[in-house]
Design a protein around this nucleic acid. Structure first.
Lengths: 126, 126
DNA sequence: CAGAATCCAACCGGATACTG
DNA sequence: CAGTATCCGGTTGGATTCTG
């Protein structure tokens, strides 16, 4: 089937081919868009961090969520998990080279949201 | 109270002051992190678009979600709504200058997610 | 055309308690 | 220390129907 290019009743531009790029945004959001996902990744950028430290760094997130996002990031290859020794069990998480490729857009997001006025924007208008 | 800087039992670095920056990421995600929010904004970057066109552009999103995100974006000042005429009612949405400031990080996200392999990443490991 | 209303399912996230 | 288990509420998102 050839590409359809139709004009609307009043000659508006075609809309049919518009769904190529934004899906990418949606996909990225699916991976990085969790409430804590970005923060976790961000905290790992300077070196490996242990579970409880991460948990403390990200005050506000429960250990459950940390663990959950961590396992998701691990499954997707952005984060690596490493058990250190056998006494009081110790686990370090580190960002992978692949995970590092995501830091650019996280940084762009950070930059943007830091430029926001503190109030009125994140407050729901209702 | 002075800033506390404590060392862990094995001399690890302080963790107390770590919660300054990543909160920004979380905030940004709260605004742009909706499943369709980014796509909507992205589709508006080239000029005003009408509701149903937007709905068609973002195949996969229900009109309910489009309307909901649109109202949220409007409340936050990233998008402006304008009623055009009075026959078959017509409404155009356009991105505001403020909304445009978010395009940079959306573009970074798009760039990143386009660099991803098509499979294995968005699939859930389970 | 541009929604609002309703209903419903799935997921997300938090609190608490428990384990090796 | 590094999680897991359980429960529970809120939000998100989708389908469908209705309206002016």
């Amino acid at each position: 089937m050839e590409a359809r290019v139709e004009l609307g009743p009043r000659g508006r531009k075609s809309v049919v081919d518009a769904c190529t790029k934004p899906c990418a945004i949606e996909r990225g959001m699916r991976i990085l868009g969790g409430k804590w996902t970005g923060s976790i990744l961000w905290h790992l950028k300077d070196g490996p961090v242990r579970f409880n430290d991460l948990s403390r760094m990200i005050g506000g997130a429960s250990k459950k969520m940390i663990a959950e996002r961590l396992r998701q990031l691990e499954a997707r290859g952005l984060v690596a998990r490493e058990v250190i020794d056998g006494g009081p069990i110790t686990v370090e998480y580190r960002i992978t080279p692949f995970g590092e490729t995501a830091l650019d857009c996280l940084d762009a997001l950070r930059l943007w949201s830091e430029s926001l006025p503190a109030d009125g924007v994140d407050a729901n208008g209702s």
